[in-house]
Design a protein around this nucleic acid. Structure first.
Lengths: 190, 190, 190, 190
DNA sequence: TATGAATGAGCATTCATTCAT
DNA sequence: TATGAATGAATGCTCATTCAT
């Protein structure tokens, strides 16, 4: 087994932080290399190029988002609580260093790049499906999808407003609204 | 008084396009200088630095947004049509070269920068006030503000989704929803 | 004794091709390692350094040149035909991928390097001796040496012109001239 | 008039020297920048890229070769002396720091590059025409062209041998042979 | 005012090489 | 022995900015 000064997940975590904090263009290989503990050639040895590193980071971020946020949808809790917990976790991520949503940030800065676009798009679709899955427990699938979509739009907007204002009320409002939607439809269905 | 080879508005327009297309960090002084017609020293002579140029561009973009989009709210049309026209104009801007919303793009890339933040924040507030003003014609001021706020969030989200997917349905959905809100409350009030 | 995954001659052949195609400086260890099948550390493990690898390649190329070209001088054919065949073989090498003469290429790019110089010089001397040996069959040794020397100069010049123009006439002219010299002196001697 | 710390001809001369001494690939922008007195960005500001700089250097070298070597063919001297003087000048260039012929060096290292090839090819053609012009004074145009061509081949070969051996006899032999050709044909014509 | 030249720092990437297993 | 990882230096080039005229 070869030596492994730093494991790949660790490198990706640190690079993710840099990309998240600085943005794609402003995150230089130097900064990424320093943050990851490897030298510049070491980092490029592992990932080939900045672009490929970014792809790896996007995939890693997606996995982490699944593990930390979306997985909540499968927990043994009342659906409403699962939704609330899921959104709170996501808010916690966004509030960390006031960075907002990694995927939304990258979407607006590099979203038209053919290498990054599919990864970001997929994540948003998965979010919608997951959230729609929860609403589907209290409404029709179609309505659930619609609510999830609208909630996604609102969330991305909220995260932008939060980043500008540093006012977490924008994020908390999302949770409120999500729960409210949930309640409205629960009653409707009865 | 000597003639002005290139007038300031023209320069700002061209720089706006570069910032919008490339993003703040990726827009180099070289590209900006070439696009603006002035040389690099000329551009910096006028504006001092890239940062100050960006501030000027943000102000210019705000003026243009007022003149082209928000001004619609004062036209002699039924309020509902004003709202629809306003949003359609705004969508037309976003669709141009699939660039999305200039202010949202800059918010996510540079929004924490103390020089740019107030300009972007102000624009969003003005948008909200303008749109709320229209809704206030058919509902209470408070409800109007709330709808305008939610519409803003949705719009920023929609513009992100549009940039990723190149599907204008995201933008058109906003118009529909805005009009729908309008109708709902009009009926309510009667 | 363990089997040898790749034998040395094979490695040298592949490295020779890279050096020939790219030139000494432009041939990177990466390219050489990939072409040779060994990794970078493997290649350097075998040869110590790029410089030492080049020396090995020069020696290998010299052996191959002896086996494929100069050996023709010993075949059982009329001397004139041996000369012609020898030169045609040499031309065939030069025409391969329009690479010209490996030794002349290396002479001009790295000929002053003390490690490579003797190997290249020796090859040229051997060529002269071999060709002079053939001319010596129909003229005095001194004349033979002179003709061989002049032919060497012309050949190196021709190979340069061929590389520039991609016109094989430069190379074929050498064969013609060599045969013509041969005939002139054959007649003279009679 | 803008400031001009170093004039272009001077820069080209110094870069020529570096390219001549080191070869194209081994001549780094750093070395070229240092030699030329400008910094790296300054050098690239003037020429755009290493490739374009090389093109400029090739053109400059050609001009210099015309002015210093080929111009001799127009002097008021007996043709034979003009030829001898021309070749001696050319030899003097080749002997400087044992660099050999700049155009032959570049031909073998980069001659297949489409940007450099035409410039090198043209120079060789001009050399042939000039030398043929002198031989044409004592023989038929066709013979003159043939002699000039053969002399070119021999010269390029000689310059290679000189670079390897550091023995100027290779170069001086060219002058002798050239003069000898001249005398042979002068007598023939009478 | 406008513009070519200049600059020091930094860019992403590759270099030849060494190390550790 | 072979091979992934690591490394310090250098690659060609661009950055935002300043200077001098």
């Amino acid at each position: 087994m070869p030596i492994q000064k730093t494991n790949k997940a660790d490198i990706l975590l640190r690079c993710w932080e840099v990309f998240h904090r600085e943005g794609y263009n402003a995150a230089s290989i130097s900064k990424l290399a320093e943050a990851s503990g490897l030298g510049k050639p070491g980092l490029l040895h592992h990932f080939g190029s900045k672009e490929q590193l970014m792809q790896a980071v996007l995939e890693y971020a997606r996995e982490q988002f699944h593990a930390y946020v979306l997985s909540v949808a499968q927990e043994h809790l009342p659906p409403e609580q699962r939704l609330e917990k899921l959104l709170r976790r996501q808010n916690r991520l966004a509030k960390y260093e006031r960075r907002g949503c990694f995927f939304a940030n990258m979407a607006l800065e590099t979203g038209r790049d053919e290498h990054f676009n599919p990864l970001i798009t997929t994540l948003f679709e998965e979010w919608q499906q997951t959230v729609a899955g929860l609403y589907a427990l209290v409404s029709t699938p179609e309505t659930a999808r619609e609510i999830a979509y609208r909630l996604l739009l609102e969330y991305e907007g909220a995260v932008t407003m939060y980043k500008l204002s540093n006012d977490t009320a924008h994020l908390e409002g999302i949770v409120e609204r999500a729960v409210q939607y949930f309640k409205q439809h629960s009653q409707t269905q009865i």
